[in-house]
């Protein structure tokens, strides 16, 4: 059946915006804050790092705390395996007071592809511990169902490699994930243009998570707004129901002449 709900539901929380923002790679905190505001997002990811005595101004907590409608979703980046990810999640929850966690384990620092096995183990443990778990995963329909089975609130398959701007190179697999999923499917990573976000939403994604494409745009604040519009457009198009492509092929010799 067509998705009729208008708000995004994640583990009992409702969001009007279907755009989730990453807060990395911005030139400065002020631009980041303005981009968040322009995007209308209600959920942003943050990362855990060592406190830097020489640059206490790096601290994101204070500016983010001022954004009243925005919930935090700590990620587990930097974790090399499920054990480290679980601990990072606990630290993140301690620090943010937020039940959301983006499980993200990418042991290879070059291509940053997620480790499916460690991600599964961490997600399972964290879901059992009461976290609202959103794992960042390869676009793998089997893994997605296994993560649903262990209680994840959503799955976040990659559209392309992190920061690559490769777009929706995994579209076929994401389509398969959406087809059989009972939980929201959120494209995370790889998007470059708002039109790609729109396409992901048209395919039936529940939301998209964008970071680099906004942070690295010439004008991040304007791009944040453009992504919000792309997501809205794609979602509205999905609700409206796309006209299918025509596939009426004409056979050279009749196939149904045997019918009485």
């Amino acid at each position: 059946m067509k998705d009729e709900q208008t708000s995004l539901k994640l583990g009992g929380h409702e969001f009007k915006s279907r755009l989730i923002l990453g807060t990395g790679k911005f030139s400065d905190i002020e631009t980041m804050v303005r981009a968040i505001e322009a995007s209308g997002t209600e959920l942003v990811t943050v990362a855990l790092r060592r406190f830097n005595r020489d640059k206490p101004s790096d601290d994101l907590c204070a500016p983010l705390a001022k954004l009243k409608n925005v919930k935090l979703m700590p990620n587990t980046s930097g974790a090399m395996n499920s054990k480290e990810a679980v601990r990072a999640a606990q630290l993140g929850r301690e620090l943010s007071g937020s039940p959301f966690v983006k499980v993200e384990i990418h042991p290879n620092p070059h291509h940053l592809m997620p480790d499916a096995i460690e991600t599964y183990l961490a997600a399972k443990e964290l879901a059992a511990d009461g976290f609202i778990v959103l794992p960042y995963i390869p676009a793998d329909p089997v893994l997605a169902k296994k993560l649903e089975d262990v209680g994840c609130a959503a799955v976040m398959p990659l559209g392309a490699a992190i920061g690559s701007g490769g777009g929706l190179s995994t579209a076929d697999m994401i389509q398969l994930i959406i087809r059989d999923s009972n939980i929201p499917v959120i494209v995370d990573a790889g998007l470059r243009a708002p039109s790609e976000a729109a396409r992901a939403m048209e395919m039936g994604c529940a939301a998209v998570l964008v970071n680099s494409a906004i942070a690295a745009a010439k004008n991040p604040v304007a791009m944040a707004r453009a992504f919000a519009l792309g997501v809205e457009t794609g979602y509205a198009a999905r609700q409206a129901g796309l006209m299918p492509k025509s596939a009426v092929a004409v056979a050279t010799s009749p196939l149904t002449s045997f019918l009485k």
């Binding site: 039936g204 299918p244 492509k245 025509s246 596939a247």
Partner: peptide
């Protein structure tokens, strides 16, 4: 009917 024939993600409709 022609549109249904080409549906990319077929459903009940």
């Amino acid at each position: 009917v022609r549109q249904a024939l080409g549906a990319e993600s077929p459903d009940e409709t």
